[in-house]
């Protein structure tokens, strides 16, 4: 990529695969379990986290030389909370419908470990541009897992994708359901997300054995 140096590009690409925040660092699991019962919620959450992490990383990075190390965690927390509240208030005033859809996610964003993790591990020690790329990269890595989990949970649990029935109607018994197929109710409860994430972790580590941790 001509736009980004090789080093910068790896900030985006690493979290997508070999340094994925969910499957490798095992952060942000809580929200990955909570909101992936449907694909739409996964996408909304991914975009929200991308915004907060991208902007938050830049803000923290700009402040990195003046933040007292003793209270840096609190400062980080204040920055995330402020950003989220600003977005929430502005949406409530100008895009009320959207703000209602997002209200569920506000609390989950503030407490998302990936956000605090990236502030602490990256933005405090790097410039704003690189921090921005790191934020985008990590939220993409987070988002891609959310979308994969959401895809399987919604498809197998409800037989729909983005709310549209793709396997036929389970009550009228059309499509696949005419052949005796049933939705798997287990897929829509949170433990199913843990299993899907587990399978992703397994597949990823069996393709790249270097990722397997020493016991």
């Amino acid at each position: 990529m001509a736009l980004l140096s090789k080093k910068d590009a790896s900030l985006i690409s690493d979290p997508l695969a070999d340094n994925n925040p969910i499957t490798i660092q095992v952060l942000g699991i809580c929200s990955a379990l909570a909101i992936t019962a449907e694909l739409k919620a996964s996408v909304v959450m991914a975009i929200s986290v991308m915004f907060v992490l991208g902007v938050g990383n830049v803000v923290i990075s700009l402040m990195r030389n003046v933040i007292p190390s003793k209270i840096r965690i609190i400062v980080q927390l204040i920055v995330v909370a402020t950003l989220v509240i600003i977005v929430d208030q502005v949406l409530k005033a100008f895009a009320y419908e959207l703000s209602k859809t997002l209200s569920v996610f506000v609390g989950l964003i503030i407490t998302n470990c990936i956000i605090m993790g990236r502030f602490e591990a990256f933005a405090l020690g790097n410039g704003p541009w690189r921090s921005f790329l790191d934020g985008i990269g990590n939220s993409l890595g987070y988002g891609i897992i959310l979308v994969i989990v959401g895809f399987f949970r919604e498809l197998l649990g409800s037989g729909t994708l983005f709310g549209y029935p793709v396997l036929g109607d389970p009550i009228e018994k059309t499509g696949l359901y005419a052949l005796g197929y049933e939705n798997n109710g287990f897929m829509i409860i949170p433990p199913a997300a843990l299993i899907v994430v587990g399978i992703i972790i397994w597949v990823q580590r069996s393709r790249n054995r270097a990722l397997i941790e020493e016991a």
Binding site: A34, T36, E38, S103, V104, G107, I188, I189
Partner: peptide, 12 residues
């Protein structure tokens, strides 16, 4: 019906 924070895809 409306809700403040029910689980998306389930209670929501």
């Amino acid at each position: 019906f409306d809700h403040k924070g029910e689980t998306p895809g389930l209670g929501a």
